[in-house]
């Protein structure tokens, strides 16, 4: 059997006395679209932060197996090294680079795949020029795929909201990931934009050879997209399964809607 590309074992994260994550175990297979759902404050974003190295988990282990490579641990790796190893993410509250154009935002994503240093940047030998040209074309191609090519030289901050969300995905994609972590990609989108996002995520999985783990509150999107769903509540994983399993799971319903009172 193939090894899971992401294998999170018994992840626990304490903030002082608060257990934000409690013994969470999640596995993700190659080519899967998995969703991580749960009520507000359940610890979903904390989970992402632990994987991507922004937080260092109290206990537990994060193992990755990039396609064609050996299994490795992400323990104590800084965020930039996690990205280098092929995990890219987007943010719940959009974090684009305001002072840059759309293309440059994507070019930043290419950063860790470029090799020219300061001296080369100052002297600009042919190798640096070619690399730079290649990076610009790669970035432009990504923008075309994501459908943002018309904005290429606009300032990122002037984009419509939905386009900003897509640009975050484009930027993450530019780092050549094998696993994409999307933190509430549909938040604040109108139904039309959500529909387009749905198509985009499926297209990404089928054409870009990435697996996707997403946090989302839009249940329609989650149910239609996900091959597998993990549910967390109060930092604990309470259920996992296919969309149909999760819909029928009493624990999940309880977490979202609360328990029926005895004397009702």
């Amino acid at each position: 059997m193939n090894k899971p590309i992401l294998n999170v074992k018994n992840l626990t994260m304490n903030f002082g006395g608060l257990k934000a994550l409690d013994d969470v175990t999640i596995r993700l297979e190659k080519g899967q679209i998995a969703a991580l759902i749960g009520p507000n404050g359940a610890g979903k974003t904390t989970f992402f932060n632990c994987i991507t190295g922004i937080y260092e988990p109290t206990t537990g282990e994060v193992l990755i197996t990039p396609p064609g490579k050996n299994t490795q641990s992400l323990r104590r790796l800084k965020p930039n090294y996690v990205t280098e190893r092929g995990i890219a993410r987007t943010f719940q509250n959009i974090r684009l680079f305001h002072g840059m154009t759309v293309l440059e935002n994507v070019l930043i994503g290419r950063h860790c795949r470029l090799s020219s240093g300061i001296i080369k940047a100052m002297l600009q030998p042919p190798s640096q020029k070619n690399e730079e040209k290649q990076a610009v074309f790669d970035s432009y191609e990504i923008l075309e795929k994501i459908g943002l090519a018309k904005y290429v030289n606009d300032m990122a901050v002037n984009l419509p909201y939905g386009a900003q969300r897509r640009l975050e995905i484009a930027r993450a994609l530019a780092t050549d990931p094998f696993l994409l972590l999307l933190d509430e990609p549909a938040a604040g989108m109108n139904p039309q934009e959500t529909k387009e996002l749905d198509d985009l995520i499926l297209w990404l999985r089928d054409n870009e050879d990435v697996s996707i783990l997403l946090i989302e509150h839009d249940m329609k999107l989650v149910m239609s997209l996900s091959d597998w769903i993990h549910v967390v509540d109060y930092g604990k994983k309470i259920a996992e399964g296919t969309a149909a399993d999760i819909k029928a799971n009493p624990e999940v319903i309880k977490a979202y809607l609360g328990e029926e009172s005895e004397d009702a």
Binding site: I54, F91, H98, G99, H111, S116, I118
Partner: peptide, 29 residues
């Protein structure tokens, strides 16, 4: 001028705009 429009120059601006996103894009802060 050359530095500003190179890999390192873009990394500087990204760092100025958003440190966390910058690291998440694989830039050594």
């Amino acid at each position: 001028n050359r530095l500003e429009n190179s890999k390192i120059g873009r990394a500087w601006i990204a760092l100025r705009d958003d440190e966390i996103a910058c690291q998440a894009m694989g830039i050594d802060k």
